[in-house]
């Protein structure tokens, strides 16, 4: 079956992206993981229908795609809020008070760890190491990193997200207003960020430019 028939319900740009991803690998099945992000973006999260579509595109069975999707926690198979707040609770962050950060964020958003708020604005989760030990405690919003987040700054970050509901969340912007100590100097200022709870990456179409 042609790509167009399998994902005819996808937006035209995403159909095009799927085609490009499929062509990028010598074996179709290698495109499964990037396609899962694209499907998440298209459907909001990885619905069974989306997994079946990826299976059809890659020549895998739906069961195999489900197996991959369920192994990696960044593939969300349940509804996920507009802003996914991931609080690192691994050793460095834990020692620097991650539990308090998580508690403050849960309180501010009214969203217990591992759930999504009823209005669909927030999902809150605790995660394993996100590679920011030098800047602990660290938090991600839609996989955009913020370091040195004290509990009250975390709460402020969430309030800002709710009140100004930015189209794009950008690491540097959030770091500037809500972050603290950083692991190291990140160099040039990045203005590209994430538009959805999917890692910001050009080929997925999940990136957006910070509104200046």
């Amino acid at each position: 079956m042609s790509v167009a028939t399998v994902i005819s319900d996808w937006s035209a740009p995403n159909q095009e992206r799927a085609r490009t991803l499929l062509e990028a690998y010598p074996e179709r099945r290698s495109a499964a993981m990037p396609l899962l992000y694209l499907a998440s973006l298209e459907h909001g999260h990885l619905t069974p229908a989306a997994m079946a579509q990826v299976a059809e595109l890659t020549g895998l069975t739906s069961a195999q795609v489900q197996s991959v999707a369920s192994f990696y926690t960044m593939y969300k198979r349940d509804h996920v809020g507009r802003y996914l707040i991931s609080v690192c609770t691994s050793i460095s962050c834990f020692l620097m008070g991650a539990d308090d950060v998580l508690e403050a964020i849960e309180e501010e958003t009214g969203t217990p760890d591992g759930t999504t708020s009823s209005d669909g604005t927030f999902s809150v989760e605790h995660v394993e190491c996100i590679g920011a030990c030098g800047g602990a405690p660290a938090v991600q919003v839609n996989y955009e990193l913020v370091e040195g987040v004290a509990p009250e700054r975390g709460a402020t970050l969430c309030r800002w997200l709710r009140e100004s509901s930015p189209e794009v969340v950008v690491t540097d912007e959030m770091q500037k207003y809500f972050g603290g100590v950083r692991s190291f100097d990140w160099g040039i200022t990045e203005t590209v960020g994430a538009i959805a709870p999917v890692p910001a990456f050009g080929p997925y179409g999940s990136t957006g430019e910070e509104s200046a």
């Binding site: 069974p48 069975t61 069961a63 489900q66």
Partner: peptide
């Protein structure tokens, strides 16, 4: 391959795709 591992760690189990 209509059955596969799902999940990971302590929650890993073997199952089919829903409705398949």
């Amino acid at each position: 391959p209509l059955i596969e591992f799902v999940g990971r760690g302590n929650q890993t189990h073997v199952i089919t795709f829903p409705d398949e």
